[in-house]
Write a protein that binds this DNA or RNA. Structure first.
Lengths: 206, 206
DNA sequence: GTACGATTCGGACCGAGGGTCCGTTTCGAT
DNA sequence: ATCGAAACGGACCCTCGGTCCGAATCGTAC
């Protein structure tokens, strides 16, 4: 049971598609024109068939893109140094995690929007959500005096949803740093501890 | 500048469409088949043209449905007795409001899902959102010692989003009362007061 | 009751976008 | 060089929101 190695052209095309799609999602200035599959195929210089064979469907492609983008953060979270890494004390790690997630959505608004806008009750279908949720829940559980870690994790994630971020930063012109600060302050409120007035910690924020 | 009274058949058809659409959204057992405009037209026994002339577009129809459904709650909130009405002290009113919103989404899952799934950064486009947000913000502002009432209101509303509710209750089989209790407990946590262990108050919950 | 303009009806039609099919091309192993 | 397997690509299909316009209906004036 193993992966048969893909043919050279297949690999090249897959990479080209990822690059083109990434480009298209990133370049998108505000307006409301969708990134279409045909667009991506054209930009990558391949046929639509290739694109669907490589990724299955639109969701698959977006997941692949997303995966590539979050990988650095995942690494930092799973084996990196504090404040994101596992060695960080929970009370400090939780705000750091949320800030990292928020920064990611700020940096990849259109991609995150596309990811969360897939299907009808996404983003809760995507495996990514379950991972983040499990992580947050685990961290919350290590904090004494907190209850409902499951629901709390859901709400904290809901506070970073792409469309909310887009609404606040894109439409209502709230500066990103302001949003980060508000999320941080909200988080400390939820954690129940008296807010320590430090800034939300340096993040990757490529 | 006034409303020319509509023709009789127009009024009848409009009502028929609303009834049919309501029915379709309500009847929908779990499966993932979309309610389509053609479906609604067929169920109402009218042509698609009629439907679009009466409501403009899909969004308009869903808004009209939503409006009809929330009206009782709006009334209760704007001029009803405590715990929803304006005479209620803020610390008590806020959980009641959130519980009412949550109950509404529980009772109208498919409709709420359709409403929030419209466009790409909905539900923040719908005028309803702004109204709820303004109300929550105003109530929060009356509570001394709270900051960031704007952002807090956004997060509390995010905690009641239709797709989250659907995920928890529909997929993960969390019983509705459990969700209500968790939201209530989360709310009191956010309000910063020591949780008083009362149940989430009787609601309309038709 | 009838005539007639204004309004509404309704379903054929359109365009966009996701996804499929299959004849053609390219790969890479022998 | 040969040949089977894998990948290519774009024409094609389908669904769905939305439009159009000739036909049907309404309501008013007489």
């Amino acid at each position: 049971m193993s992966e048969r190695k893909p043919r050279k052209d297949a690999a090249r095309n897959r990479a080209a598609v990822l690059a083109a799609a990434d480009e298209l999602f990133a370049r998108r200035t505000s307006p409301e024109d969708e990134v279409t599959m045909a667009d991506i195929a054209a930009a990558a210089g391949v046929g639509k068939g290739t694109l669907f064979r490589a990724f299955g469907d639109r969701t698959g492609l977006i997941h692949a893109l997303y995966e590539a983008r979050v990988e650095p953060i995942r690494n930092a979270v799973e084996e990196g140094p504090p404040p994101l890494g596992p060695a960080t004390p929970p009370l400090q790690r939780l705000p750091a995690l949320l800030d990292a997630i928020l920064c990611f959505k700020l940096d990849n608004r259109h991609l995150a929007l596309a990811l969360e806008g897939t299907g009808s009750d996404s983003p809760y279908q995507a495996g990514h959500y379950d991972r983040w949720h499990a992580l947050l829940q685990a961290v919350l559980e290590q904090i004494p005096g907190l209850t409902d870690s499951d629901f709390t994790a859901h709400v904290l994630l809901a506070a970073t949803r792409a469309d909310l971020v887009e609404h606040l930063v894109g439409q209502r012109r709230l500066p990103p740093e302001g949003l980060r600060a508000q999320l941080a302050s909200f988080t400390t409120k939820v954690l129940g501890s008296p807010a320590l007035p430090g800034s939300p910690a340096e993040q990757i924020h490529s």
